[in-house]
């Protein structure tokens, strides 16, 4: 990975570690990743977007199994990638872990888990962030 990746990952730490999104002060719509302004309220939302920490729970909207993975993820294939709708509404794309391929189902309840996302080879930085796993504790 190019050196430019370190600053990008660093800037995105609040999103990647803690699912920090934002909410439009005018219409209350929630965004993840956070947006500069609300596409519905435009000017009215300028300077009126509030940071919000999204919960760790959601459900699988759809998913696909990756058999031929990009090079950094080759060792993990095959693995499921899903679109997850968080309980607050926003959708995120993430890998599903700690689950057998045949057990991934549309509508299944999941929770975020903190994992290694990518390493810049053996000498570069290690990038961490969210993946999702089946819900452990009811609620």
């Amino acid at each position: 990975m190019a050196d430019g990746a370190v600053p990008r990952f660093w800037r995105e730490i609040p999103q990647r570690y803690n699912l920090i999104g934002n909410q439009c002060g005018a219409c209350d719509r929630i965004y993840f990743p956070p947006r500069e302004s609300c596409p519905y309220c435009r000017r009215k939302s300028m300077g009126n977007m509030k940071e919000i920490k999204l919960g760790s729970k959601g459900k699988v909207v759809t998913y696909t199994i990756i058999y031929v993975a990009p090079e950094p993820f080759e060792g993990q294939a095959p693995y499921p990638i899903a679109i997850i709708e968080l309980d607050e509404g926003p959708r995120v794309t993430a890998q599903i872990v700690d689950c057998e391929l045949e057990d991934v189902k549309i509508g299944m309840r999941v929770q975020s888990t903190f994992r290694k996302i990518q390493e810049d080879g053996y000498i570069g930085a290690i990038h961490y962030g969210y993946k999702f796993k089946p819900l452990e504790v009811k609620g």
């Binding site: 060792g75 993990q76 872990v97 888990t113 903190f114 994992r115 290694k116």
Partner: peptide, 16 residues
């Protein structure tokens, strides 16, 4: 540990 787990990820999960 799976290949995306290390001491940092285990520590974070325990802390949370």
């Amino acid at each position: 540990p799976s290949i995306d787990q290390d001491v940092a990820t285990i520590s974070v999960e325990a802390a949370r």
